[in-house]
């Protein structure tokens, strides 16, 4: 009947998009596995190892990640305009990827991985398939969550410079976030968590300072901190 043929078209369509979703999910789980390997590498940062050695493992995964996002982009090109239809299937993995990339970037350079740099590292172009800004920002929050642990372990390992640097970085990041009007509940909650990270790092900084372990501060440092 005509009804059957009408619904038949939907079945074809749904099967097609179901197929795409399946491929995306399978990619997403590959991304997750890659993230896990990268994460395992970066966990070494909490132990007394030289930074370059820590970064080596993470770096080796960057190519894999880029490749996976390349394949993801290809799939999305098959169904133009449907980026946000499937977004939920990879967004959490992407947030984790951003957190790992920005952590390793910070370890390497001491500076923030920008949105453009993140897209670049993932091999994304902004035209069709870019990095959603919220995912980027949530990724930064996740990275922030790692910093207190990093500081604690670095101090335990005898690096007393670390707290001050992290504090400076985190204070700036926090105040940059404050400029945004976050109405998105999840992101806002994550941002709330950043305050706790900041507090903890500050605490470690004072622990170190009070015991005369921190290197001598210049006057300039003080100003930056107070204004943070």
């Amino acid at each position: 009947s005509s009804m059957e043929s009408h619904f038949g078209e939907f079945i074809v369509e749904m099967e097609k998009s179901g197929n795409i979703r399946e491929r995306i999910r399978s990619l997403a789980s590959e991304i997750e596995a890659t993230n896990r390997v990268m994460h395992a590498g970066l966990l070494l940062a909490h132990q007394p190892l030289p930074i370059p050695e820590v970064l080596k493992k993470a770096e080796s995964q960057r190519g894999v990640l880029r490749d996976l996002y390349g394949r993801l982009a290809e799939i999305l090109h098959e169904c133009p305009g449907q980026y946000y239809r499937f977004h939920g299937d990879w967004r959490s993995e992407t947030q984790t990827a951003v957190s790992l990339l920005s952590f390793s970037h910070w370890l390497e350079t001491g500076s923030l991985l920008t949105h453009a740099e993140a897209e670049n590292k993932l091999g994304l172009d902004t035209s069709e398939f870019g990095l959603d800004i919220e995912d980027y920002l949530i990724g930064l929050c996740f990275m922030s969550n790692e910093l207190p642990r990093y500081v604690v372990n670095q101090v335990t390992n005898g690096d007393y410079d670390c707290p001050k640097n992290v504090l400076k970085f985190l204070t700036e990041l926090h105040s940059a976030f404050r400029m945004l009007n976050l109405r998105n509940d999840f992101l806002r909650k994550k941002f709330d968590g950043m305050k706790y990270d900041l507090r903890r790092v500050e605490e470690v900084y004072y622990d170190v300072k009070i015991r005369g372990l921190a290197p001598v501060e210049s006057a300039q440092d003080h100003i930056t901190l107070d204004g943070g």
């Binding site: 709330d192 900041l198 507090r199 500050e202 107070d226």
Partner: peptide, 11 residues
């Protein structure tokens, strides 16, 4: 609550 935690971070 958010304000308090923020204020503490600011000293």
């Amino acid at each position: 609550m958010r304000l308090a935690i923020g204020r503490i971070s600011d000293g």
